[in-house]
Write a protein that binds this DNA or RNA. Structure first.
Lengths: 329, 329
DNA sequence: CTGTTAGCGCGTTCAG
DNA sequence: CTGAACGCGCTAACAG
């Protein structure tokens, strides 16, 4: 392994000089700068990130913390895009990214979690899908022990940013489109989970829209479950004009129930899963660019690591119509 | 951050003694061992894996290298299970696991790739889905620079193991079941990619089976693409009795084509994707436990890291019938 | 059996 | 503008 020492020797300068050049610090003459860069290139020098992490405190090691739902595998698609987007961007920004699942932290106290991350020299954490009622995780946020970026919640502090689309507005957009296309009056809304921030925001959206359009609104919680949405549809859909769902998975459940009931009702979903394309029908849905969101989250975390203030970042969304041909390859 | 030094001070012993105790080295009296362990517990000491990685050469940092197919998102499901299984097991075995995608290595020479991993103190690599024609990656394998576990290929050397199910046998099993259930004579086999090892093995399997059952076999390459399988089905399915596909995604394409053609032919797939459940019909398929495979791969890598010989590990598979009710939650 | 010492590769003062 | 020297937290030889 070629180290900084070898580069220094090759260039005929001291180790610290090499370090300065490679990290873009001032106070090095252009002549020696060039010498060092050439030597580094010649020796194919790649800085050892492990050593850098040990010695410096701004080593750029971050963690992606998320839920791994092994039961409902549909969520895999979202998680995967999240991970991929984050890894990609982290690589670009020369940050080390490790992936951690909630299940690994299960049963740990806040102190233990902090030490767990510290032991890995983690200085920043991106959290996706933090439950609004997870006491330990929210404690962790409040300690300020790490720079954090929270996806899909609305909370920011000095060292904590949040990021995500405007769920309320997105729900309004997709539902309005569907309702106007079908001239529907009575809305059946299948909401997500009660302790989910996006779920709550989407609910607010549909409430606002129903009022604006003077539609009757009937709400039940489907807990983001396909099965529950299916059952709710059997029970309540017949006497409503349109089924608006807080997630694609629930929309699929609703749609399949409608088919079995042999009645037609327009349905719209939320997320833009590929899975939608396999469910047999077309429908409007909100497309979230998950890879884009996690990519933006990494950038936001970098902003915090460089001393930036925590803030709220709102990302754009779009309304699409999922079709079979969109997804085959 | 509480370091090994603090523990030493607290226990009233030397740093190295603490290190020995915590790493289970011999040559420490039970009395001091107990003292050290108590001190560590009291201070909530968590060893810094970064520092350990720097100092020692057997630090247990490994990489999971895989393809990220951003076009055909169906693969997401498999990738996700892979990642999850590996991360989980790595955590259990106290190994640091980083995820790397092929795309990040694109255009790099073997030397650059080696340095890339060395810079991260990586000592072992698990590769999933290495193309049989990827020169650079195979060069990397041959250099022996890292301990490696290759999933779904058949190659092993001193420091390289391979792992996976018996694709040939699995293809035989699922196809035989489907054929016997339907008393089919003429088989249409939609194969995977030509330079894919699992694809080739599965093809061998169906050839063997066709001979054994004295069935006529007609083969075309679908390249693991849903669309291609769909088109091939339109073209060739009418005059055969059963469609055997080298992957679930292709089976879905075939099935949808059959529905549009309004003819019935038994179809069987390979992989056990959840996606299958959404495709509208039931069918036999091979269920691979992807999380289990990657988990086993981590264990095998650990075996190599501890000086074990490279070998071939064959994992079990099972034949299942995918149903809608199996997947909703 | 225990403690001292020397690095691992790099960042960072602080003299020169 | 440059380089010697120290330390990050830990492991591993070596003395005692």
């Amino acid at each position: 392994m070629v180290s900084i020492k070898d580069v220094a020797k090759q260039a005929g300068v001291a180790i610290s000089t090499v370090s300065k050049v490679l990290n873009g610090y001032p106070g090095v003459s252009d002549a020696t700068k060039k010498k060092v860069q050439e030597a580094a290139k010649e020796l194919h020098f790649v800085p050892n990130s492990i050593a850098a992490a040990l010695s410096s405190k701004q080593a750029g090691r971050i963690a992606l913390l998320m839920n791994l739902n092994t039961r409902t595998k549909a969520i895999d698609e979202i998680s995967m895009q999240y991970i991929a987007g984050a890894i990609q961007k982290a690589q670009e920004m020369r940050l080390d990214l490790i992936t951690v699942f909630f299940s690994m932290l299960k049963g740990k106290t806040v102190g233990e979690i902090i030490r767990y991350f510290q032991a890995q020299s983690i200085e920043g954490i991106i959290v996706y899908g933090i439950p609004t009622n997870d006491k330990v995780l929210w404690e962790l946020v409040e300690t300020g022990a790490f720079k954090m970026v929270l996806a899909d919640v609305s909370f920011h502090a000095a060292s904590v940013s949040c990021i995500g689309i405007n769920h309320r507005q997105a729900q309004i957009d997709v539902a309005r489109k569907t309702i106007l296309e079908n001239k529907s009056g009575k809305i059946f809304y299948i909401a997500g989970k009660k302790n989910s921030y996006p779920g709550a925001e989407r609910l607010k959206g549909i409430e606002e829209l129903a009022e604006e359009l003077s539609c009757k609104l009937f709400v039940r919680y489907g807990d983001f479950s396909e099965l529950k949405a299916r059952n709710l549809t059997f029970r309540y859909a017949r006497s409503r004009d349109v089924i608006v769902c807080g997630s694609d998975l629930m929309a699929i459940g609703a749609m399949r129930a409608l088919i079995e009931m042999d009645i037609f009702r327009p349905v719209c979903g939320f997320d833009g899963l590929v899975l939608m394309g396999y469910a047999g029908k077309q429908m409007n849905t909100v497309q979230q660019n998950f890879a884009g969101i996690s990519s933006a989250a990494v950038e936001e975390l970098q902003h915090l690591l460089q001393g930036g203030e925590g803030r709220e970042v709102v990302l754009p969304h779009s309304i699409i119509r999922m079709k079979y041909l969109d997804i085959i390859a």
